[in-house]
């Protein structure tokens, strides 16, 4: 195969484009800008840490099943870890959202970074909702019977039936976590491509 043919291969072009946009030293940098030394910049990675905990505990719950998480001490413990990881995930994500909103984090060509964050937030709400609907207890019965009227009013009830436990569980453990994780990965990659948004300049020069 000639060099020209190799250069024209989609794998070669994709690799060159990927490494051009995101070289390894940019993907895993050794240093960060000085302005990142602030607590407000910590909440993005805190959200990521909570997400990892949510996925790990969710995998354990998936392996052992509802009888285990309702009927054993360790099951209760892992179930609680899963719930509290989600609570911390949303808590840190909202503080991260406020920080980035007041920083106008979409500046400097970061629109897509901001938008992937917004869509990840929405996907996370849907994931949490289907999680509440999949608990298989009185709480999930109450939530789903209350939610069905709202969902039916939107016209989505025929395709997204909150009273169908199997469907809610599949959305909760397959489709929505996949969307949330892919979107989060894209969000983090975009942060690495565009860099962390700087704060507003302290002094603004006005030219007459």
């Amino acid at each position: 195969m000639s060099t020209t043919e190799i250069d024209r291969q989609w794998t070669t072009r994709l690799r060159q484009r990927a490494t051009g946009k995101l070289p390894p030293e940019k993907l895993l940098p050794d240093t960060q800008p000085t302005y990142v030394a602030s607590w407000i910049y910590v909440f993005g990675v805190a959200t990521l840490a909570a997400l990892i905990m949510v996925i790990v505990t969710g995998c354990i719950l998936a392996i052992r099943g509802p009888l285990w998480w309702h009927g054993s001490v360790y099951g209760h413990f892992v179930n609680s870890l899963h719930l509290w990881s989600v609570e911390i995930f949303f808590f840190t994500m909202i503080v991260h959202l406020w920080g980035k909103f007041f920083m106008a984090a979409w500046r400097g060509g970061r629109t897509l970074t901001w938008m992937t964050g917004v869509v990840t937030f929405l996907a996370s709400i849907a994931t949490a909702f289907t999680g509440y609907a999949s608990q298989t207890n009185f709480d999930s019965q109450w939530i789903t019977t209350q939610a069905k009227d709202g969902i039916n009013a939107t016209g989505a009830g025929a395709y997204f039936n909150v009273l169908n436990l199997g469907q809610m569980l599949m959305w909760h453990i397959v489709l929505l976590p996949l969307a949330a994780v892919v979107l989060t990965a894209l969000h983090v990659l975009l942060v690495r491509v565009k860099g962390v948004v700087p704060p507003f300049a302290e002094k603004v020069e006005v030219h007459s």
Binding site: T34, A37, S38, W39, I40, V42, F43, F91, I94, V95, W98, G99
Partner: peptide, 28 residues
């Protein structure tokens, strides 16, 4: 309570000094 805690955390994140920030600025 959760909303008030988030607001308190947000304000603390802005106002609380970050460890090592001063030495980093001096270093630069």
């Amino acid at each position: 309570i959760i909303i008030l805690l988030m607001i308190a955390t947000f304000l603390a994140a802005i106002l609380a000094p970050f460890p090592g920030r001063k030495s980093r600025k001096e270093h630069q």
